[in-house]
Design a binder for these strands. Structure first.
Lengths: 102, 102
DNA sequence: TCCGTTACTACAATTTCTGTAGCAGTGTTG
DNA sequence: CAACACTGCTACAGAAATTGTAGTAACGGA
């Protein structure tokens, strides 16, 4: 059921994941959902990308079961999405160190 | 010295980092350099992207001090780059689980 | 000299993304 | 009921990024 996407000829999970996360705004969207659910327009305002692409990314993330739409609260991470986020959180701390190095 | 790039209006390190890593092929290039240095053409063959964009991304990664060109061996991760990679490695294991879930 | 290798560039065609406007559905308020 | 606000989402033309192909210039070895 894994979609064969751009740059992922093998279908190896890590390649599919890197390809998904390597699309513009994807990582950023996951990041913005790290704490609480956000409405479509909220994401738009936070991120500053066009609604077209935000909607496209949200659709991809929903298909990948990393994000879901909760009618009452907005877009939120799924359990899988939260697992992924936990792996990405250390980037936050590291980025500060990195910024000082460059 | 942090470059104000696409989608990073604030200049906050995490945003700059997410923006950098969120460009097409960037994550993939870091990933391909995880074990040993690779030549330009080697990367091209492994990744299957155009030389134009590979060169652009390598330049960005070099400017970000995550990758360096070792004349004798090819492109390799810097110490900073290796640190970043260590944070990304858990994605590999997780991606297998994720792939089974979708 | 010729060949292979290196990193890298030029450039037109194609694909992706942006920016703006707007749609359709739901609820709320006057 | 009418007007308005909010929801997710779409249309579309222009701008920007990416591709695919070809080629450059420098270096080393036969």
């Amino acid at each position: 059921m894994v979609k064969r996407v751009r740059g992922s000829r093998t279908g190896r999970p890590i390649m599919v994941l890197l390809d998904l996360l390597g699309r513009r705004w994807t990582l950023r969207i996951v990041w913005e959902l790290r704490e609480e659910a956000k409405r479509f327009r909220e994401l738009q305002d936070l991120i500053g990308a066009s609604p077209t692409i935000i909607n496209t990314r949200l659709a991809e993330l929903r298909e990948a079961k990393l994000v879901q739409l909760d009618e009452d609260a907005g877009y939120r991470l799924t359990t899988l999405g939260e697992e992924l986020l936990r792996l990405l959180l250390p980037l936050h701390v590291w980025s500060e160190k990195w910024a000082r190095s460059i």
